[in-house]
Design a protein around this nucleic acid. Structure first.
Lengths: 252, 252
DNA sequence: CGCTCTGTTGACATACTTCAAAATACGTGG
DNA sequence: CCACGTATTTTGAAGTATGTCAACAGAGCG
């Protein structure tokens, strides 16, 4: 069974068989099983090696001195984190599991080896990082510009799409492991209002959400109410070839 | 005169003389002068080479279909952008000048050459990228958790600190090229409320802001009202040495 | 079967927005 | 250097999206 990381990376471009088997091997070399709701890495603490989430959900979050907490991103199987850990002297944010999870800890020389022996893989890793940044930017845009309802619709679209791209969605349904309180922390709103916003979306026949399972009843309309444009999830194009820049829209 | 990029990168770690002169040379090889308020790169359009902002201010922003605009980050002299442009097939956001600006376009093989001939420089480039991500995360945290007053205080602290670290602040003063409308777009609030928030901060004797010049009258108190912790601007430590991970705060 | 966590509801409060207009600064051409 | 048009800042009054508080109802779990 091919791991979710592979599926994810292959979404960005081709990966030859040798690279694929090497990656699959690396990813099962050193796996830790974790209970739900524990910190893997702590804001202010030391950094770690490159991690790959194999199974379960996790979050990246920041806390303010007074305890307010912002969930920066939701990590699902196939997601990598702390890719540049070796560069930082300490974490500016934390990583915690939401559910029971399995995490692969990659060897310290993983990136170096990939660079030398599997350049196609290395390229896809950078693509992944690039897309992660794009997701982060979209999140900022949500927080700054979208209304509560739009933000909610948007995060639902995003998490559905991301799961679908690693074969974790069945038809219009996928797992959904955020409590309403966690959703509130991700969307910069209050748990009570999250509840009301979800009810709005349900009443409008856009979604169904119960027992950790999200069903999208009308994707087109949900995307419309979210002002969702999924392009940011697939702006990468490792096959496009180096230097082959598209015509540049320079104003000057 | 050493360019701001060099100052910035040297903030992350040492850079030997050969790398410094090579960098300084690369950065003045192909410089474009731009008028204020023009797009350099357009959302949806093609990507470009690695850019370095030499002089003037610019912004990274995203627009929603209906015209709402979120300023994602403010670029000041020494900042680089589009570092991974070659990986993406299109831009998920735009870059525009705010003031008249000068921008260096680096050669397509800049990164490759740096990797081969100036590994110390390459490392600092990744550090820079890493810090940019941290800034982006802090921005999300602001948008999601901080009140209008806190967000305002925070962005003022950040822009002051960043300018200071490239010698662009004199005492407690620095340039400030955002209009109140732009400030509003960066902070996810309304221009009117930006105005009122600024007046609050002024009335409280925290800042002075007039004629594109910001003066911080009481940094300690401003940081306190912002819940500002400047560590995120200097989490990088290229000298720390590869593999020398600090003791890890694993919960498991 | 009782505890704790999560979801739901209602009434009320407020931080922030909206609209609209005046005052001030800013740039440009004459 | 002035005069005019445009962009920015400032002010006031009124509206609303979202937050707060508090209580209750289910669900999950040992």
């Amino acid at each position: 069974m091919t791991p979710h990381v592979t599926l994810k990376l292959r979404g960005f471009g081709d990966l030859n068989d040798a690279s694929q088997t090497w990656l699959a091997d690396q990813v099962q070399r050193n796996v830790r099983s974790l209970p739900p709701r524990v910190d893997l890495l702590c804001q202010g603490g030391g950094t770690g090696p490159l991690h790959v989430l194999i199974e379960g959900w996790a979050i990246r979050y920041k806390t303010l001195e007074d305890g307010r907490r912002q969930i920066l991103s939701v990590l699902i199987p196939g997601d990598m984190f702390d890719i540049n850990g070796h560069l930082a002297k300490s974490m500016d944010h934390s990583i915690a599991t939401l559910t029971p999870a399995r995490v692969a800890l990659l060897a310290d020389d993983f990136l170096d080896t990939a660079r030398k022996l599997h350049p196609d893989l290395e390229k896809l890793l950078w693509c992944d990082m690039h897309v992660s940044s794009a997701i982060q930017r979209e999140r900022s845009t949500s927080l700054g510009q979208r209304t509560a309802r739009e933000r909610m619709a948007h995060i639902l679209c995003e998490l559905f799409m991301r799961q679908r791209s690693v074969r974790l969605a069945e038809g219009g349904s996928c797992a959904f492991h955020l409590t309403q309180t966690e959703l509130a922390e991700a969307l910069g709103m209050t748990p009570v209002y999250v509840n009301r916003t979800l009810q709005d979306l349900r009443r409008d026949g856009l979604i169904q959400l119960e027992q950790k399972c999200l069903t999208i009843l009308d994707l087109t309309r949900l995307e419309a109410t979210a002002l969702f444009d999924g392009d940011y999830l697939k702006i990468c194009d490792a096959d496009g070839g180096a230097g082959a820049h598209k015509e540049n829209a320079h104003a000057f």
